[in-house]
Simulated scan of single mutants.
Amino acid sequence: MRLSQLVGPRKSEVAELPDPAPAADQVLVEVLACGVCTSDLSAWRDHDPAAAPLRLGHEIAGRVVAVGNQATRWTEGDLVTGLGGEGFASLSVMDAAALLPVPAGIEPAHAFGEPIAVLEEALSRSPVAAGSRVAVVGLGFMGLGLLQLAKRHAPGLILGVDPDPVRRERALSQGADVVFAPDELPAEYVGKSGHVADARFDVVLEATGVTPGLATAGRLVRPFGTLNVIGYHHAGDAKMDMDLWYKGVTVVNGFCPDRTRTIAAMAVTLDLIAQRRFSYAPLVTHRYALDQVDQAFADMETAGPDFVKGVVSSTRG
């Protein structure tokens, strides 16, 4: 098998390794596509060259090529997605219980289960309902995915917020009703309206992973509203705006540490994909071969106007 592994800061190498064999409760998957995730950026930037090589990639979709003797739900040839690791490779061993089928007629690169399962699980803990006012702060991959997922609940208004005009324009095609840069938000949206009626939001979904985005999200949420922090705030401290406390805001930690909840959310989102109610097609913008993993991370880091989501495939090229 071929596998890309991180050997130093911003430096990966493709290694040739023996093909792995699945344990009794595992399956061996030919990786047809693996998404590049911002949660791995810190590791890619900072990996210690004196440490053992690090194998990244956890957004896997592929074809079953071997089955453990207890993994009886699956047969060779099944297209699957789920929770796994070491996905920047031609083959990956995955737990049979952490897999779900790729919807019929959907290409694997448009059927990653893990990233939208994370978004859906977080969204399920926010009271988005028909007629509610929803704001999504940060219109990268996560924010655009949240727009699609939230739209199906028929909110009265969905606001998208991002400093990048190209991202704002893209958000309008993905479900946002109105879009603004953070410094151009109407006064009534952030509670500084004076004589104008308060128009802050029932639910605010933060998808930036940076402190300024968190601050903007906090200003948008109404008294007794909900702020869901879904962006990847990797390390260090983030300021708690005490105005949230005085407003009686419910702050939700959008991270889910429980595999059972994530798999349940994945089943929901894969069904949405099957029904064409969610689509990766406008989100997957860049594709890479195994020897281009560093370029994939570099493109995600700079996040140019045409970049939303990168996908690595051992069969590309």
Results as ranks from 00 to 15, higher is better:
Met1Ile: 06
Arg2Leu: 10
Arg2Gln: 15
Val7Ser: 07
Pro9Tyr: 13
Glu16Pro: 00
Leu17Trp: 04
Pro18Met: 08
Pro18Arg: 13
Asp19Ser: 14
Ala21Asp: 06
Ala24Thr: 02
Ala33Met: 02
Cys34His: 05
Ala43Cys: 08
Ala43Ile: 08
Arg45Asn: 13
Pro49Tyr: 14
Arg63Pro: 03
Gly68Leu: 05
Glu76His: 08
Leu79Cys: 01
Leu79Glu: 08
Thr81Glu: 00
Gly84Phe: 02
Gly84Asp: 00
Leu100Cys: 10
Pro101Ser: 13
Val102Tyr: 02
Pro103Met: 06
Ala109Asn: 02
Ala109Pro: 00
Ala111Gly: 04
Val118Met: 05
Val118Gln: 04
Pro127Tyr: 07
Gly131Thr: 05
Ser132His: 09
Ser132Ile: 03
Val134His: 05
Val137Phe: 10
Leu139Phe: 14
Phe141Gln: 08
Phe141His: 06
Met142Gly: 15
Leu147His: 06
Leu149Tyr: 10
Val161Trp: 13
Glu169Cys: 03
Ala171Asp: 04
Ala171Gly: 07
Ala171Lys: 14
Ala171Ile: 12
Ser173Ala: 15
Val179Lys: 12
Val179Asp: 04
Phe180Lys: 09
Leu185Thr: 08
Gly191Cys: 09
Ala199Lys: 13
Arg200Gly: 04
Leu205Lys: 11
Val210Met: 11
Pro212Asp: 02
Gly213Lys: 11
Leu214Arg: 15
Gly218His: 10
Arg219His: 12
Val221Phe: 12
Gly225Met: 05
Gly231Lys: 13
Asp237Thr: 14
Met240Gln: 05
Val251Asn: 04
Cys256Tyr: 01
Arg261Asp: 08
Ala265Gln: 11
Val268Arg: 14
Leu270Lys: 02
Leu270Arg: 07
Asp271Lys: 13
Leu272Tyr: 15
Gln275Pro: 01
Arg276Tyr: 01
Arg276Phe: 00
Arg277Tyr: 03
Arg277His: 11
Ser279Arg: 15
His286Cys: 02
Asp291Asn: 13
Gln292Ser: 09
Gln295Gly: 03
Gln295Pro: 01
Ala296Ser: 07
Glu301Gln: 09
Val308Ile: 14
Val308Tyr: 09
Gly310Asp: 05
Val312His: 11
Val312Phe: 08
Arg316Glu: 09
